Simulated scan of single mutants.
Amino acid sequence: MRKLALTIFAANSQLLHAGNQLVAHLGLSSAWWQVLTALRASEAPLTTAGLSRKMGLSRQAVQRIVDLLELHDLVKLQPNARHQRAKLVVLTEAGFAAVGRAERAVGPIDKVIADRLGAERIRNAINTLEELNDVIAGNLAAEVEKLSKKG
C-alpha cells in the first residue's frame, strides 16, 4: 500500500508541475485550472464546499482559489436557494474560454499519455483510483481521525 501511495504522490506532483508549465502562458496555474475544469465538468453549479469535496482539497484552499478566480472574472458567485450563505460558484464566459484554452494547451501531453497507456489501462486506473477514494472516504476517514487524536 505504501508504494501505491508514493506512486500517486509522485504522479500528482508530475501532473501539477507539467500543468503549471503548460498553462502558465495563459495566466493560469494548475490549481486555477483544476477548479475551472471541475466547475465545467459538474452537471450543476457547486458551492465552494461542494467543489472541495469533488476535488479532495480543503474548503479553505478552494475558497482562496475561487476568490482569485472571481477577481479575474473567471467565475461569479450566485445565490443558492438551498443555503443563503453558501453561494454557488459558476463559470463566466471568460472562465469557459480559459478552460478551453487550457485544455488545448495540455492536449498534446494528454495524447502522449493516452497513446502510451491506451484507453483500457486509463479506464482501469480511473476505476481503481475512484474505488480507492471511496474506501478512504467511507471507511478509513474515521479510523484516520481516531488514530490522529491518539498520536
Rank of each mutant, 00 (worst) to 15 (best):
S42T: 07
A10K: 15
M55S: 02
R104M: 09
A141D: 13
S42M: 12
V89L: 02
G138Q: 13
F96T: 01
L36H: 08
A5K: 11
P108C: 07
A61T: 07
L71A: 08
V112P: 01
A119N: 07
G118E: 10
E131M: 08
N124L: 13
S13W: 09
W33N: 10
A31S: 07
T48F: 00
R85D: 02
A137W: 03
S30A: 15
I122N: 05
V106L: 14
I126D: 02
A18E: 12
R101G: 11
A142M: 07
W32A: 12
E130D: 12
N20W: 12
L39R: 02
T92C: 13
Q60Y: 07
H72Y: 10
G138L: 11
N20R: 09
R2N: 10
K149H: 12
Q60I: 01
A137L: 08
Q84Y: 08
L69E: 10
K3P: 00
R123A: 15
L74P: 03
A38C: 12
D134C: 01
L129W: 09
D115K: 09
N124Q: 13
E130K: 03
R40F: 01
A18R: 06
Q14F: 09
V62A: 09
T37C: 05
Q60V: 06
N12Q: 14
V135I: 15
A86H: 07
V35L: 11
S148C: 00
L129A: 11
I136L: 10
L15H: 04
A114P: 00
W32M: 12
A81T: 06
A61R: 12
N124K: 11
E103A: 12
K76F: 12
D73G: 04
A94R: 14
T92D: 04
E93Q: 10
A38M: 05
G56H: 10
N124R: 15
G50K: 00
V144Q: 01
L22H: 12
L26F: 06
A141L: 15
M1V: 07
S30L: 02
V35C: 13
H83S: 14
R82F: 00
R104W: 10
A49D: 04
A10G: 04
T128A: 12
W33G: 04
G151E: 07
L74I: 07
E130W: 09
E131Q: 14
L140G: 01
I136N: 03
P45T: 05
P79L: 04
R85H: 03
L51W: 00
A105N: 10
A97T: 14
L22N: 13
E43I: 13
D134I: 08
A98S: 06
H83K: 10
T37Y: 13
K146T: 13
T37H: 09
S29G: 08
G27F: 05
G138I: 13
L4V: 15
D110L: 04
P45W: 08
A105Q: 02
